[in-house]
Amino acid sequence: MMSVKKLQVIGHRGLPSLYPENTIPSFVAAAQLGVDAIEFDVHPTRDGQLVVTHDATLERCSNGHGRVRDMSLAELRELDFGSWKNSAFADTRIPTLEEAIEAILAVRSDMFLLVELKDTSEDVALQVLDYLRRRELLSQVMALSFHTRLMKLYRELEPTLPLQGFPDRYLKEPLPDAYDIINKTCIWTHEITAEEVAFFHARDIAVDVCPVDNAEALDKVLPCGMDSITTNAANVILPILKQRGLR
């Protein structure tokens, strides 16, 4: 188990406390702050492109309407993915998977990436994997999904690729052997216990907790012995950890 003094900090969708989530400004800011890894979400477009956004629909994080997968990349590029956060981010565009990764690696070439598959399609999962292979990024990527079927597919195709799953109660598709194929799991901050962390550690599965966005949340989770924290507010958490001698 990773020492608490080396507790990994993952930027959840970049730095959404200050920037529009899952956008290049958010990713660049998180990388510049010094997080250990950045997590983001991938969806397909109607014309077979891969874009980075969390929701399957457009309403929450843009001025668009409908499903991401029903629109072409060109149509998505016309939408504003920043003004919902603050007018200072007006006209921020949705990034493709390639653009998001290149922006992050331009800041830090060895940044670890957590790529979440939001779509249920195996074809989309294979498209993501093909890009990661061609870009030679498998050594600095962990794939994650609530769809265990996709994690099993990745395990068969890339036996050494790190995979993150979730406790059975969170899964879209619970399978009896779900814990046999993952290297890491993620437990919500309000639910995590030392007992559940020990359960996963006994199975050689690392544990992340999400979200940890302030000192109160950090105080709650630290005694549980997890291996990493995922935060929406790395600008808040990193200074606290440093002040406490945990970085």
Rank of each mutant, 00 (worst) to 15 (best):
T57N: 05
S87H: 05
G48F: 06
L97I: 12
D55C: 03
Q127E: 13
P95K: 09
V42T: 04
W84G: 02
E136A: 14
L33R: 14
E59N: 04
D36K: 01
M111Q: 13
V35T: 01
L137Y: 13
G64H: 07
L126I: 03
E116A: 06
K85I: 00
L50A: 13
R67P: 01
G48N: 12
V107N: 04
L76M: 09
T92Q: 12
L73F: 14
A106Y: 02
T92I: 11
L73K: 06
V107H: 02
T45P: 07
L33W: 03
A90F: 00
L132S: 11
A56H: 10
L33M: 15
D119P: 00
A37C: 13
L129A: 14
A56I: 00
L113V: 09
D36A: 03
S62D: 07
V51M: 11
A88V: 00
K85H: 12
E98I: 10
D36H: 13
L126Q: 12
A37G: 06
T120W: 13
S121F: 01
K118N: 03
V35H: 01
S62K: 07
A56S: 12
V51E: 08
L33F: 03
T96V: 10
P95R: 07
V35G: 01
S87P: 09
A31N: 04
K118A: 03
R67Y: 14
E59Q: 13
V68M: 02
D80Q: 06
A100E: 09
L137P: 14
E39G: 09
E59G: 02
V128F: 03
L79I: 05
E99A: 15
R133E: 15
V51I: 14
Q127L: 09
V124L: 12
N63V: 05
E98Q: 15
V115F: 11
L97V: 12
M111P: 01
D80V: 12
K85Q: 11
T120Y: 13
L117C: 06
R69H: 11
T57I: 05
